[in-house]
Amino acid sequence: MGLTKAVQARALRLIQALITATERRGHTSKIGATRGAPRPHRRRSAPPHFTITAQGQECGFLVRQEQDRSDHTPTEKELAEAKKYSWIRIPQFDYTPAGRLRIILSGGQPHRASEWADTADRTLEDQLAEIVQEVDLRGEAAERKRLADLEAAQQKRLRWEAAMQQARIAYAESYRVKHLEAQAEAWRDATSLSEYLSAIRLQTEKLPAGQTKDDAETWTRWADAHLQRLNPVNTPPRLPKIPEPRPEDLKPFLHGWSPYGPSY
Results as ranks from 00 to 15, higher is better:
residue 47 P to L: 08
residue 22 T to C: 14
residue 36 G to F: 05
residue 248 E to I: 06
residue 188 R to Y: 08
residue 110 P to M: 01
residue 129 A to K: 13
residue 13 R to F: 04
residue 123 T to G: 12
residue 89 R to Q: 02
residue 130 E to F: 04
residue 2 G to R: 13
residue 51 T to D: 11
residue 251 K to S: 08
residue 35 R to P: 03
residue 28 T to Y: 01
residue 245 P to L: 09
residue 101 L to T: 00
residue 181 E to A: 14
residue 166 Q to D: 08
residue 158 L to K: 13
residue 213 K to D: 03
residue 146 R to D: 05
residue 73 T to N: 07
residue 122 R to S: 13
residue 217 E to K: 09
residue 218 T to Q: 15
residue 141 A to M: 04
residue 10 R to E: 00
residue 82 A to V: 02
residue 40 P to Q: 06
residue 223 A to P: 03
residue 45 S to E: 10
residue 173 E to F: 11
residue 19 I to A: 10
residue 105 L to K: 02
residue 214 D to E: 15
residue 26 G to I: 01
residue 254 L to V: 10
residue 9 A to K: 08
residue 14 L to Y: 01
residue 47 P to I: 05
residue 63 V to N: 00
residue 30 K to V: 04
residue 203 Q to H: 05
residue 122 R to M: 05
residue 30 K to F: 09
residue 168 R to V: 09
residue 228 Q to P: 03
residue 123 T to M: 08
residue 218 T to R: 15
residue 160 W to E: 11
residue 219 W to H: 15
residue 87 W to L: 11
residue 134 E to D: 03
residue 71 D to L: 08
residue 64 R to C: 03
residue 103 I to T: 02
residue 99 G to Y: 12
residue 126 D to W: 01
residue 14 L to H: 04
residue 166 Q to V: 03
residue 55 Q to A: 12
residue 5 K to G: 15
residue 184 A to M: 14
residue 72 H to F: 02
residue 119 T to E: 02
residue 218 T to K: 14
residue 198 S to T: 12
residue 193 L to D: 14
residue 24 R to Q: 11
residue 26 G to P: 08
residue 172 A to Q: 11
residue 151 E to L: 05
residue 243 P to Q: 02
residue 5 K to C: 06
residue 42 R to N: 13
residue 35 R to Y: 07
residue 91 P to A: 09
residue 146 R to P: 00
residue 178 K to A: 15
residue 247 P to A: 12
residue 50 F to A: 06
residue 103 I to Y: 00
residue 220 T to K: 15
residue 160 W to F: 09
residue 94 D to S: 15
residue 212 T to V: 14
residue 170 A to C: 06
residue 227 L to F: 02
residue 252 P to H: 12
residue 89 R to W: 01
residue 232 P to H: 01
residue 106 S to N: 07
residue 205 E to N: 15
residue 152 A to F: 08
residue 149 D to M: 12
residue 116 W to I: 05
residue 254 L to D: 03
residue 82 A to K: 06
residue 83 K to Y: 10
residue 259 P to H: 07
residue 130 E to V: 01
residue 172 A to M: 11
residue 103 I to E: 00
residue 127 Q to A: 00
residue 163 A to Y: 04
residue 62 L to E: 04
residue 149 D to S: 12
residue 155 Q to A: 08
residue 182 A to L: 07
residue 130 E to W: 05
residue 213 K to R: 15
residue 129 A to R: 07
residue 209 A to G: 10
residue 206 K to A: 13
residue 100 R to M: 00
residue 243 P to C: 02
residue 143 E to F: 07
residue 211 Q to N: 13
residue 4 T to V: 12
residue 90 I to R: 04
residue 232 P to A: 04
residue 75 T to H: 05
residue 33 A to E: 15
residue 105 L to C: 06
residue 54 A to C: 09
residue 76 E to F: 02
residue 76 E to V: 03
residue 102 R to Y: 00
residue 149 D to Y: 04
residue 26 G to H: 00
